[in-house]
Design a protein around this nucleic acid. Structure first.
Lengths: 211, 211
DNA sequence: GACTTAATGGAACAGGAGACCCGTTTGACT
DNA sequence: AGTCAAACGGGTCTCCTGTTCCATTAAGTC
């Protein structure tokens, strides 16, 4: 409860936003790096503010003041990730583009460092409303970046006109995230391939046409 | 770290397994009920061993001894859920059965009490290996219960022979869990319907045929 | 280059989580 | 019914988490 008030009042105009100079940015970089390391090594449940402060070479007061809690750290990590965007593929055929998208998701989730971060983000989002909103926003922008790929496919007539691009892209991601977050199965190349194929087959059948 | 040793040494032959008599079972029931309540009210991050003990009317020593941590509580809750199984549908047509499956998943995840439990379980599984295994086992049995439904559909020729039943069922669940756990979007009836339709379309196209 | 103020960091402090000890209760077995 | 062992529960103690206070450092501004 006090966690929630701290987060909502410290995020919009928190320390670091009014004076985004050299030191403040360095502190944030060091803390977020330390957070990534800690997540990769010991996971979200062991995320400890004091240890983060120590390994980032920063006063623990600062960490508590600016981030408030492990969930706050992960949420900020998410904001940081949202700022770096990767370009979408363009192989000339929708099947290839969707396959590339599925492989990108797979690579991210199986990456030893990134995978741990995503596990943490999902756990944190299940605990905290604000983190959930940040996560939703992250995927909204990520999917929007790839939407033109689907639109081009529709123009080429590979899928029915009126197909909802984002809905199709969600269908590609869903099987991968389902295995990653829910059943914790291994993400093989097969799984990614089938995710792309299944989504495309459904799109061709008109399941994602917006009425 | 000490959490891990405690869990591994207390779960396989923990108190309560050697003497599954009246009191022990009552204590477990009360504690798991209190856990469900707490999850529904305040979520996983606020799960507090002392408060659980108090609201279950049980000594906190007992809760610490038998479950060790919030993750342990949620893991046991999961074991408890795994024991109650619901019968699979049989509408006579695969499309209807898959739709029923999707609706069942949707009802579970949107159920105010159950939804909170699933959020907690997913968060706990992201933190703890043993909980992740328990969750994986839960879905293995759940999906196995529905596999005959798909097999009947294949016999009726509604999908290609050789279609992997579990793979098809995963495809139905995936979009729902993706929205539930990752993007935290609302699970409308539309979403469930499209999940079933898309999975069936992909199956008809032969995407889930085991080579 | 001096001034103002945001941000940092060290130290001390309070509160609560979690472990331990040991007496009590209760189920299982004869 | 009586015995034994297992599980429960109250009380206590310790250590860690998170907060507060204040001096120090360094951005931004003139």
């Amino acid at each position: 409860m006090e966690q929630e008030t701290r987060l909502t009042e410290s995020r919009p105009a928190s320390p670091g936003t009014l004076r985004p100079g050299g030191r403040t940015a360095k502190v944030r970089g060091a803390v977020l790096d330390a957070t990534r390391d800690a997540l990769a090594e010991t996971g979200f449940h062991a995320l400890n503010m004091d240890r983060i402060a120590a390994s980032a070479g920063v006063g623990k007061t600062t960490v508590y003041r600016r981030w408030g809690s492990p969930v706050g750290l992960v949420t900020d990590l998410l904001h940081d990730m949202a700022e770096q965007s990767l370009p979408a593929a363009d192989t000339g055929a929708l099947a290839g583009d969707l396959r590339a998208n599925a492989e990108l998701v797979r690579d991210t989730l199986t990456h030893p460092r990134m995978g741990a971060v995503f596990h943490a983000v999902i756990a944190a989002a299940a605990c905290d409303e604000e983190c959930a909103r940040a996560l939703a926003g992250f995927y909204r922008t990520r999917l929007a970046e790839w939407a033109p790929v689907v639109a081009r496919g529709a123009e080429r007539g590979e899928i029915p006109a009126g197909t909802d691009p984002v809905e199709l892209l969600r269908a590609v991601s869903a099987p991968l995230y389902y295995r990653f977050a829910v059943t914790h199965e291994e993400l093989t190349g097969d799984v990614a391939g089938r995710a792309a194929e299944a989504a495309l087959a459904a799109a061709r059948a008109g399941v994602f046409v917006r009425e």
